[in-house]
Design a protein around this nucleic acid. Structure first.
Lengths: 129, 129
DNA sequence: ATAAAAACAGTAATGATTACTGATTTTGAG
DNA sequence: CTCAAAATCAGTAATCATTACTGTTTTTAT
């Protein structure tokens, strides 16, 4: 007696399909293409619930917005502090989760955020010098 | 001609010493012990600047507050969705950062967030059954 | 079919964070 | 050591992403 609604299904679908890491309002804009009269509050409520249950991930990069990620496969987020872009990097396995497990922790989702300077920004910087 | 103030220094000191992952206002409360008349706005301004420059890390766990971390040594955050607690797990090296580097990305800070259920909550759950 | 439970749309309220202002501190050149 | 420009500050007002609320609709499980 819980959890289903076509709105929630649409939100999950949108998140699974988006390859970016959308904010709540970006999700809202996208979901409106499926359910035009969906409410922004519904998007927030469902994102919060999905995050709480571990079905999606949320990350904060300091731009004032939460960013959501529907991809539960363990992967690294490369976050460039220069251009602010987040790109994904997939590992064939998840060494840290394995380590966490060996400590008695039952992992179900994980995100690695590596902050630094991306390839493009490094070359841009070198041109400027 | 930039960046120094005793307020900023106190904020960094507090963050380096705190073993928890304090919110902005927890930092504020702590810094007040050093500089009693410091302003909350100053704390926010400096936290934002330090985060921007990569001197500290900020993480979002869905409680409505940003949490800050002054420890730049690569480590895992074990985030329990049950009790909400974050505990640190140190690795002898940082395999993901090394992998990022091999992709042409220059890493300087990284955090791994592994969400799941911690030891204590697992045993509590089993008692309930 | 149907009644209780859950979720919704729409909107108002909240409160963490940011922006602003005039005062103070820091910096670096002379 | 001045001293003025630049940066930062304290204090407070404003912002705006997110949450809460209300009456309605959908879902669920008998």
């Amino acid at each position: 007696m819980k959890n289903y609604s076509k709105q929630r299904e649409a939100i999950i679908t949108v998140l699974r399909d988006m390859k970016t890491h959308p904010t709540a309002s970006a999700v809202y804009e996208k979901v409106k293409e499926i359910i035009p009269n969906i409410s922004l509050g519904t998007v927030y409520r469902n994102l919060a619930a999905l995050r709480e249950s571990g079905d999606i991930l949320a990350i904060s990069i300091g731009d004032g917005f939460d960013h959501f990620d529907g991809d539960k496969k363990p992967h690294i987020h490369l976050h460039c502090r220069e251009c602010k872009e987040i790109t994904d990097l997939y590992l064939t396995e998840d060494p840290a989760a394995a380590f966490a497990m060996s400590q008695g922790f039952e992992p179900d989702t994980s995100v690695y955020i590596v902050s630094g300077i991306c390839k493009d920004c490094i070359s841009k910087k070198q041109i400027k010098i």
